[in-house]
Design a binder for these strands. Structure first.
Lengths: 154, 154
DNA sequence: CAATGCAATGTTATGTTGTAACTTGTCCTC
DNA sequence: GAGGACAAGTTACAACATAACATTGCATTG
């Protein structure tokens, strides 16, 4: 039961939505940024900056330093095009960049897959708890490490 | 309003509780482990393995490698004597090692302070959500980055 | 008590993740 | 085409983490 409707993109459409979003923020959609976004979106699990550097290097047949990737990933995270998975030191593309909310990641310790769920009741509760403790400008990090259904079919 | 009672330890008492707990698990309470625990408990904010290595090195007037610290920290986390703060790559002593539950950390981006709160309703909700998605052997990571009341007194 | 075994720790090396500082390239404007 | 502004490249290094193997010290037992 989805809490709200939002557009889920994939492939061309996703890249297009990302480009839209980024340019709307006054940032440029460059070849390099597109390459990084494509690489990121091409992974089926959270990818490290170095994973992405390798993928882009391969795609472009030239060496691309992790450094540059970090810059672009930071930009993406700031623009909601990507999310950082803290407990995995890795990043995932955001499939609905126009929709701004906290999210919860479930990460399988076996296969590395991450699934993303939304639950505003929970994330709101966490935000409230932080506020109550006097924290401001809060950014919740809610992740669950565990074993996914595919890896533990019991 | 505490959700439940539990013993909060500090200083001698905390070390004693930790020793108790560890030995009860069949592990040894060695001089090195005590030194690491004391160093960890001596920090007023989450400390990295390297911070602790430095503190122990100073206390013992000899070089202690980060390596050994990691081993002991892993042991501590496994025995509930310490917690890892994922979003800070750092560790904190657990002031009530006999009480097993999920916890929530609020970390100030300005001063690095971390405060620890318990809220079984929230952590339980996160666990339930993960279970619903087919995950087992779950270990929630719930942290909030933000600015603490001292750093932003508005 | 020597021999053995085992757990803890030490040592060295290396892998992984993340930043800093500065340079170069490109595009736009005047 | 000079100058500014931003993207990207380059080099270096800092910070975090693990692997592989050696050594130490203590407990057991023959």
């Amino acid at each position: 039961m989805p809490v709200h409707d939002h557009q889920l993109h994939e492939g061309e459409s996703l890249r297009e939505a990302a480009r839209e979003r980024l340019t709307r923020q006054g940032e440029q959609w460059t070849g390099m940024r597109e390459a990084v976004f494509d690489a990121l979106a091409g992974f089926d699990k959270p990818a490290s900056a170095y994973d992405i550097a390798e993928a882009v290097s391969k795609a472009q047949e030239r060496r691309v330093a992790a450094n540059s990737i970090y810059r672009i990933l930071d930009l993406f995270v700031g623009a909601n095009l990507a999310r950082r998975v803290e407990s995995a030191n890795a990043y995932v593309a955001n499939t609905h960049p126009d929709c701004l909310h906290d999210c919860i990641f479930l990460i399988c310790d076996q296969c590395g897959q991450a699934v993303h769920i939304d639950n505003d009741r929970l994330t709101g509760g966490v935000r409230d708890a932080a506020k109550e403790a006097g924290f401001t400008q809060t950014r919740p990090v809610i992740e669950v490490r565990g074993t996914c259904g595919d890896c533990d079919p019991n």
